[in-house]
Design a protein around this nucleic acid. Sequence first.
RNA 1: GGACAUGUGGCCUAGCUAGGAUAUGGCGACAGCCUCCUAAGCUGUAUAUCAAGGGUUCGAAUCCCUUCAUGUCCGCCA
Length: 571
Amino acid sequence: MTVDPLDMFKSRSKELVKEALARLEIDVQLPLEIPPEGKGGYAFPCFMLAKEMKKSPADIAKQLSQEIPEDATFSRIEAQGPYINFYINPEMLVQQTIESIMDKREEYGNWPQTGVKINLEHTSANPNGPLHVGRARNPILGDTIARILRKCGHDVTTEFYVDDMGKQQVTLTWGVENLTQEGEIPEKTDHAMVWYYQEATRLMESDSDVLEQINQMVAKYEEKDEEILARVKDNCQKVLNGMNASLRRLDIHFESFAWESKYIFNGNVDRVVEELKAHEFTDYEDSALYLDLEKVGITGQENKFYLTRSDGSSLYSTRDIAYHLDKLANYDLAIDILGEDHKLKAKVVKIGIGLLGKDEEKIEPLFYSFVSLPDGKMSTRKGRVVYLDDLIEESVGRAQKEVQERRPELASELKRGIAEAVGTGAIRYNIIRVQAEKQIIFKWEEALSFEGNSAPFIQYSHARASSILRKTAVLGNYDLKLLKHRTEIQLVKALARFPSLIKESGESMECHPIAGYAFELASLFNQFYRDCPVLQADEDIMNARLALVTVSRYTLSNVLDTLGLVAPEEM
RNA sequence: GGACAUGUGGCCUAGCUAGGAUAUGGCGACAGCCUCCUAAGCUGUAUAUCAAGGGUUCGAAUCCCUUCAUGUCCGCCA
């Protein structure tokens, strides 16, 4: 059975149009469109034939439709104005779709393995403090895209690039080794460590002795001092552990961690510099190597993009080039989830890879805009920040209150589970439902909405479906021809779209269409729930509807999983 | 100053890649629906010069140009 239940309808309608055109000896392809509600499943506009045939599009549509024979796949094929509309045979659609989902179950929506190996780098936040909401878009976006690509059949490895080379990391380590934190120390390691970083940064700015000490450490570190490396990595790891704990709560995990220092210590960065300095697009200024942006066609910037300092030590982007070289050696595609502030750097990395003779098209950066607060950008230093952990706590806390109000009779363990699922789900969904390049201004009321277009809305539909199925014995024989209510057909149409949606979203690497679909599907299920009683219906109808509820539940569960949301049995 | 992105009812948002039939939904507002499978639900009403102007086209939210607004970048930081 094919993955996409709509496939036969799409290809058959195209075929029929093609044959009709051939009979009229017209050598043009008509595009397939999805018409508005009530105009059938597929439509072919005839405008582009008007010039050639010297007739109005409406007349052409009429003439063409007369050339199309009746076909079992469609209940009606007719011209309406300038369009030929194909009405999908609802019985066949219901049959195809429900059987396909019954057959695939948890696998419905998954495409066959492609063998394509993808490295998907996301989050990669500097390990000097807890994740804040301004950055939280990165892991959520990255994890969701990873899930989509896996459903598309690709072999995805998610990776966190740990920056353990910057001055910031040395500053943190200096703080840990020279300062004593007073008062109550937070239990979570990222929250405990950030104090040292903030305090050391403050001291460094006011005390030149401190600055001197830190600079000396940085200098030694860049000369590949293994002992300092061990100390810095140790502190990074502690912060990283805290970050990972936060992300785990959102069901975000990494398969791999790539440490930036590795590429310095193993000599790869030196090799990159060696090769690049021979290139005609690079030059020296005071023995600092730079790339001439004008020569590579980047305008709007200062012309020099530095690849090394004048002492020969490497810069961030140079190390990033070495890192990406490594990715391309091991993967077919490298995807990077990056904040919009990284656009120029990402471009330079791609160019660098190209200059080294590798295929830069295999690097795909995806950008997102920052989440800011109503009074501006989030900043850890200025204390103008909402930590991800606080957002999660607040969200789960509010969800806990809601569950308590709505379902006081449930066991408290169950209520806690529901609150966790709803609270964390609301956060993920709110980030993912908007296209990544739109700027978001963080507002508590919006971030923690549990009604309307939100995660709990979708989870609730799943809980309703589960509830119906919980109350019945094993599914009996069913006759799908009995499903002909308007909302039943609409629900089936939505169910049928899932596999093609997964594929399209994987190709465009966008998450928000899936969120929109999840909401639409849940909404249609709720309408079905209102219009079509299941358990009270006559046995024949009940069995047919139970089949529809079963496949709806599978599909709801699969979309929720694609978005990284829990599908609760009850809420 | 230049570069990249974004601009759709009071607020948020889909549609833009491949121009087509009355611009998608949510929040908020107002009016309704629990003797019936969970009301985190459902139904209805009102609200849009698709930032502005010009162009291409039989046809533009969608393509092109100009302008404006917002975000981001333009460090021998990361």
